[in-house]
């Protein structure tokens, strides 16, 4: 059973690895645009990596207004 905490952990690890940010610097309530220093194109890149990692489809409109890792994890969790 994939718990929300587990999903959140995997998102943080994936983001840290891909965007080369130390994992310990990322917290669930961070604004990932600011913390990762990404723009909209890189956000799409992150979306694709998350879809591939979790084997889910995450429609873009579900991410409207989502800026923190915790909410992002809940959106993914709803599709696992």
């Amino acid at each position: 059973m994939h718990t929300l905490d587990h999903t959140l952990d995997e998102i943080l690890a994936l983001a840290a690895t891909h965007f080369k940010v130390p994992r310990e610097k990322l917290t669930p309530d961070d604004d990932f645009f600011k913390t990762l220093g990404i723009d909209s194109l890189q956000a799409l890149d992150l979306l694709t990596r998350l879809e591939t990692h979790f084997h889910v489809e995450l429609p873009d409109y579900e991410l409207q207004g989502v800026t923190d890792f915790r909410t992002l994890a809940s959106r993914i969790q709803a599709r696992l």
Binding site: F33, D39, S40, A43, D60, Y61, L63, Q64, T67
Partner: peptide, 8 residues
Amino acid sequence: TDAQPYLP
């Protein structure tokens, strides 16, 4: 100035 202008 939206950070996500490419997102529908």
